[in-house]
Nucleic acid binder design. Sequence first.
DNA 1: CCTGTTGTACGAATATCTTCGTAAACAAAT
DNA 2: ATTTGTTTACGAAGATATTCGTACAACAGG
Lengths: 127, 127
Amino acid sequence: MNKHIKPTESELEILGILWERGASTVREVHEILEQSKEAGYTTTLKLMQIMHEKGLLKRDASAKTHIYEANVSREKTQQQLLNKMIDTVYNGSATQLVMQALGHHRSSRKELDQIRQYLNEMEKKQQ
Amino acid sequence: MNKHIKPTESELEILGILWERGASTVREVHEILEQSKEAGYTTTLKLMQIMHEKGLLKRDASAKTHIYEANVSREKTQQQLLNKMIDTVYNGSATQLVMQALGHHRSSRKELDQIRQYLNEMEKKQQ
DNA sequence: CCTGTTGTACGAATATCTTCGTAAACAAAT
DNA sequence: ATTTGTTTACGAAGATATTCGTACAACAGG
């Protein structure tokens, strides 16, 4: 029984911040959010409260200032969104997505090597 | 000046169909949509009308039965969504996304070769 | 204490997306 | 001509997401 994680755009931004920082207060999240977005503090607060209700975040409310933390793993969320994207936007072809991702995000040589190695491992497993 | 394409979930499904089929009537789109989704005909119609207003679709209304066609390219839309995803969900690392995409979508040997070749070309260009 | 600051809770306004009922236009069939 | 079926147009209801004003509690410094 796998949860159907479906964060909205705004929720994803907040999750991203929490995945990076780990447990944080609303103010901390808000301050980072502000750098790329116009938003009032209570807006961020409300958003995070709703995310808590939905189960996307967990929180420690023992102190006055509550501490929030992501309650869904980055990996699982990534996989979920990735699959949907491959399906609807890339018509099922992961290869297509991979090449486009490589094409536009000039990767370093190190990264390319990393990927190449990954490819080799995959091929070994297949045989 | 680049348009900010931001189709919703439902709009993406319709775009996907139009990218596949090319110019189509509402009914044709609707029939495909129905296979994977519960929806009334007028719902699909309205959706496509709104997409037309937004500029996502263009249409030929010269005959009674209008013909709709995607007005945003698959490539540009893919790139846009991909970038956003890499940014918010993969924290900027395209490599990360690539490896996860490969890991879960067991690709054929042919596809792996294709990607490998692509990697080589990229590396050549970089030097 | 009082006062200003910082925090949460609540609820409502706004915006946006999704769905569909109903009407009107039109064409084909009877 | 009347009926039947297909289509678009319009508008409104329902669902969901986003934003923020206001109230109130906790706390720190004077």
